[in-house]
Design a protein around this nucleic acid. Structure first.
Lengths: 215, 215
DNA sequence: TAGATTGTTAATCGATTAACAATC
DNA sequence: TAGATTGTTAATCGATTAACAATC
């Protein structure tokens, strides 16, 4: 059975299932019921079953779910059985930090290039990969089968860079720039707006303090 | 009027409104209607009006919203009129990158300390702030009125560190560790699970490619 | 077989959108 | 006043939870 029309709410939960199942597997747990998983993850068993059933029947009545099997299936659904080639645009602090994060590689996300327009950074190495000048990126993308571009450039250049990259075949953007990209239909964008996230935290902190004061 | 019982869906949209309104203000725009803002942000005008009305009436019939006023109000709702003191736990690549990100300071998030358990990092400076040994963190938190802890430690130590910090008065965690924290009721947690985000992107990329193949 | 637990349908809840009366 | 646009109520849509028949 093939998945279709799955809501982003469900997709957003898959990585968390994947993480918990991976941990269970590492502990040697063979099977788990939706109810046990429900207690562990603090979500309803109903939601777990509904979520999994979007992709077809992974379980077995009276038994539950096989941890190893479910783990692998979710990984496959998330596309983690495939290798993805990525480049980082912007070799500042955040770009370098992401480039150094070895765990992505374990999941099949292979860093192929880093680009920056600051000549002072050319040749600097991030895990075997040398920072290259920005004006080489278009050719590089066309010749190296790159799927994903990680944008860690200032917001002032992000929109333009994304358009250029999309025109050269990039299919997905992991966008850390604090701006909404403007890319053609069908090009995927996942935003990580760190300051938005911090503001949300600030709101919740504020609200809770206020509630305490007011009783 | 005071806000209460606002859904996280609404809160999650506030920073984006804040960003667009700030840009409009910087351009010298004085007023905007929900319909104009709707076109700009690509959300419905209905949603904009509903969202704002959660916090009381910010607009005026026949006129729209005053950009400057609305911008400030949303900032206030998000707690950006207050100063927050934060510490970073874990001075690795990501911790240093976040510490160097100057923009947070502009919004009132002031970095007060950085801690790591690796002695090789003690004394290393991140924007005037010296990395301190982990065993000084509890005293530091108690004595320096710190609200927010940024967790950029490995998942293996994150849960324990969070518990310790919560016991010493930290009220909010910005958690970059790939694990669910276990903190007392009322302590706020905002998770930034980067690998989850990347997996979501991978799913959407995968799905789109598949749809293209199958027509 | 009896017990357990899924897969799935139905009920509920919450969030989004539409509509329009209030009002500047 | 007439036109514009909000604030707010009602309608719709989608997501979550509950219930239970199917089945291992």
């Amino acid at each position: 059975m093939e998945e279709k029309g799955i809501s982003q709410a469900v997709i957003g939960r898959l990585p968390r299932y994947f993480r918990y199942l991976g941990e269970l597997r590492d502990k040697g747990v063979e099977r788990i019921s939706s109810q046990e998983l429900s207690r562990l993850m603090r979500v309803t068993a109903s939601q777990i079953r509904q979520d999994f059933n979007n992709f077809g029947g992974f379980g077995q009545q009276g038994y539950g779910y096989n941890v190893e099997f479910l783990y692998k299936e979710i990984g496959r659904i998330l596309g983690l059985d495939k290798t993805h080639h990525l480049i980082i645009i912007g070799a500042g602090n955040l770009g370098q930090a992401l480039g150094n994060y070895i765990n992505f590689e374990r999941r099949g996300f292979i860093l192929k290039g880093i680009f920056d327009k600051n000549p002072a950074l050319y040749g600097k190495k991030v895990r075997e990969i040398e920072v290259q000048p920005m004006d080489r990126v278009e050719e590089f993308v066309r010749e190296n089968d790159i799927d994903i571009a990680v944008l860690t450039v200032p917001k002032s250049s992000a929109v333009e860079v994304a358009e250029t990259l999309a025109a050269n075949g990039i299919k997905a953007f992991w966008n850390f720039a604090h701006v909404d990209l403007n890319v053609p239909e069908g090009i995927q964008v996942e935003n990580v707006h760190l300051s938005d996230s911090l503001m949300k935290l600030s709101y919740n902190l504020e609200r809770y303090n206020k509630e305490q004061e007011n009783g």
